[in-house]
Design a protein around this nucleic acid. Sequence first.
DNA 1: CCGGATCTAACTGAATACAGTTTGATGTGG
DNA 2: CCACATCAAACTGTATTCAGTTAGATCCGG
Lengths: 260, 260
Amino acid sequence: MKRRQPIAPLDTDPPAAGKTPAARAAAAKAGPRKRDNVGAADARIYDAIFQAVMLHRLKPGMKLPEPQLCELFGVSRTLVRKALQRLAGDHIVDLRPNRGAVVASPTPEETREIFAARRAIEAAIMPLVIANATPARIKVLREAIDAEHEALHQPSQREWAQRAGGFHTLLAEQGGNRVLAAFLTQLMSRCSLIVALYEAPGDALCEHEEHAELVARIATGDTAGAIALMDAHLHALEARIRLPKPEEAPDLAALLGLGA
Amino acid sequence: MKRRQPIAPLDTDPPAAGKTPAARAAAAKAGPRKRDNVGAADARIYDAIFQAVMLHRLKPGMKLPEPQLCELFGVSRTLVRKALQRLAGDHIVDLRPNRGAVVASPTPEETREIFAARRAIEAAIMPLVIANATPARIKVLREAIDAEHEALHQPSQREWAQRAGGFHTLLAEQGGNRVLAAFLTQLMSRCSLIVALYEAPGDALCEHEEHAELVARIATGDTAGAIALMDAHLHALEARIRLPKPEEAPDLAALLGLGA
DNA sequence: CCGGATCTAACTGAATACAGTTTGATGTGG
DNA sequence: CCACATCAAACTGTATTCAGTTAGATCCGG
């Protein structure tokens, strides 16, 4: 017999899960197909997996079997597959033909490309933020930094506040370009996978001081300075990732004792 | 009775289309489910629609009814829907709940955001291209420009060669960052929709001279110059789009004769 | 002849059914 | 005791079915 260990780390939210297909059918019989019941179930599944990945509760390589997701969310495979396909489109899961979905594992090469892309996007966002800056918005940024700083002391909140990357997301919002913001969202989710994969010394998190200094430069309208600092900030973050180096990434011959 | 005018402008490629579901079933009966027969049918559908949009054969607002796509490609709605969902994820089609898929119509606001994002991405690509530049690669770029210039004289090829934006795609490839290249691909497809929507005087195309000058700056390693020129090039392209201005974008009151 | 209610074919959304594939477990020969 | 063939449960891929919605066409009153 095959093993079937359940997926714990998912937050299934609204409709109580765990119903069997039969139970689900019975419940549905109540009214003649209630439509507005829960609506976009696939979005719930997408979000639950997305958040679980951001929080490192789902780690790279973990399997996501469709039948289990069906039970957890109380829907048919149709909607589960829809969600998984969207997640695959965003490179959060990997859909291996005939072998099911797993949480994606970015390669070292992809890692470099993702960070380079992040630097490009976030640098491009800085002038937009500065152009839109108002005292009220600067205040919002400062409060976000304080909130994250605060959250560091409550261990339970810490992961979430930091890993959601609220400050960077907030900057993208203030930039006002939703296309760039969407790109950044995707890149940040992939960064979360990278951090989970190549776990760094002391867990790779953003430096608060750099965020604060960044806001200072935004407030004074120092575009070049803000871009330079953001670039350095992201380089530092990348440097904290322990990428498997060529020497650690061992060719087969050596492992087999066939080396020089 | 409802009208059902067929979708002409699609290139269905491999397996002869137009089979009825019954005919398809019969054909499949031949062997006990041949698998490697055509394989990724959804990719074929995706590509066909993608290309048709790039060539402006499918224009914004056009409906894409699932049953017709099923007949055209000889598959069930399952795969058609899969392809449409991917296209929606890339903002090439718009999935209106209960009302079917249509080719997307970017708004003026989205247009500005898309072009701003394109400038950011393509600017970020320039230093990568320069860093990777070799005489051989420069030659490839020059040949691409020549080929596009050539194609201008064959009206049949003209559209394709120009609208596919081969030169920009080639730069993205030479940059060697596949994440940025993928972002650019998406942005270029959306630009194609924009051009189709807000048709410009003389059809908005890239200036060849600017491409040639760009290669010159790449060849001499003039990073700042290349970035600046690319930025200007894309600004010029955007300027050629006739965006509906506030005065053309008519408030209802005026149209009803209730204005001042 | 025009505007609006009514009907229904065509269509979309989601579940289910069915055909294959993978993969771990079991059994067997060396 | 281990390597390998065999088997079946669990799972994935695609088609099909069923329920509900939309929207063009028809019918009717003014």
